[in-house]
Design a protein around this nucleic acid. Structure first.
Lengths: 208, 208
DNA sequence: TTTACTCTTGAACGTTTGTTCAAGATGGAC
DNA sequence: GTCCATCTTGAACAAACGTTCAAGAGTAAA
């Protein structure tokens, strides 16, 4: 697999081009726009080659979804070169960064969510990625706030993810950037709040 | 149009059944699952009848999207029977209500967003509905907080919508209900905060 | 050169899709 | 009954789709 016949390096290997083309079509035209012929055309290869590298359409889409998930997880990857609270702050701010807030990426994220609703197969990919993102974020929070319990970290991570998902989604709908910035600030407030374990009652009773 | 041949009332008119079937398929299997034959089967009518009531597939889907948008707008409709701040509070809490947080509705919302990304036509429907929802929410906020300026109301509405969209989306992914409740509380905090127009510097200079 | 293997092509097949349409069914007005 | 407009059916068509496959191109080792 690894030793593909890369002639001179100037031409990326076809398999990557095919996957890239599929993701491009998915972000621009949705799942209806992703058909084998369009993918082949976009990648500049023959129709048969798509089925050569990806057994069927479902495999191709699954590969695309895994790529998006890898992208997501990089956001909460520990960075040994920074202090714990700087790592967390950087991670929280990165979700509104220029490289993340592109229409292409946001659209891909959205279509992945939609596909997860349509097919049990894709739902599992999505659920696993969601869980890993949550766990990664909780770890960053725990590193920056050593006094917090594991449950408190996960609780905060869950609250932050809600706001982040809202930002990603609403950014696509064209909400103003100032609102994004205010919500980023709110995620930081949640992340760095002093540990006040359930001291401020907010209506509902809840288990530990 | 209006006087359809409703035999005895026991049978809903076919046009509604067709639209309902299309929305059901959209929520369960995504846009790929919505084809004219499946819609006809689900609605219990012949294939040709779908094209009789809806000129083409695009019209059918557009009708479905309009239905979802009507549903959304009811959330921020003024209720003359309640006091202004009670109206606002009710509206904010309704987004986590049992009738709203169903998989069917959330899934439909999600697929609408995804379709809006795929087609300019659907994007416009979505953008208009988003704008009307934002305006409706801003009005509720203004009624409950007469001291706020119009811009401040819209600002708060935008911030709340981000969190609400996040809740809707994350509810589909299966985040725990407690997190939803905490985020509902946060939308209320935003809505009812005292007017402190830009007093607290936001953005870069924040450090604690 | 020959051999062997991987990569690449596009025609071809069978299926599914959106749409059209002639034909029939239905119900009220006359 | 006849007439007329509306509603309903399913066969039929053309286009688009996913997939298969025999054939070829390319490269490295013999």
């Amino acid at each position: 697999m690894g030793t593909s016949t890369v002639r001179s390096g100037e031409q990326i290997d076809r398999q990557s081009r095919i996957l890239e083309a599929a993701m491009d079509l998915l972000s621009r035209h949705g799942i209806s726009g992703v058909n084998m012929r369009a993918v082949a055309r976009e990648a500049g290869v023959a129709l048969g080659l798509v089925n050569y590298y990806y057994e069927d359409k479902s495999c191709l889409i699954r590969a695309a979804l895994h790529r998006i998930d890898e992208h997501d997880l990089m956001l909460v990857e520990p960075d040994p070169d920074s202090a714990p609270d700087e790592q967390l702050r950087k991670s929280l701010r990165r979700v509104a960064g220029a490289e993340l807030l592109t229409t292409r990426y946001l659209s891909l994220r959205l279509h992945l969510w939609a596909l997860a609703q349509a097919s049990e197969d894709f739902a599992q990919i999505n659920a696993e990625a969601f869980e890993r993102y949550l766990a990664g974020l909780a770890t960053l929070i725990g590193n920056a706030n050593p006094e917090l319990s594991r449950d408190e970290c996960r609780e905060r991570a869950a609250d932050i993810v809600v706001v982040q998902n809202g930002m990603w989604l609403t950014a696509l709908l064209g909400v103003d950037k100032a609102s994004i910035q205010r919500n980023i600030a709110h995620t930081e407030d949640i992340a760095f709040a002093p540990s006040r374990k359930k001291e401020r009652g907010l209506g509902e009773s809840k288990e530990s």
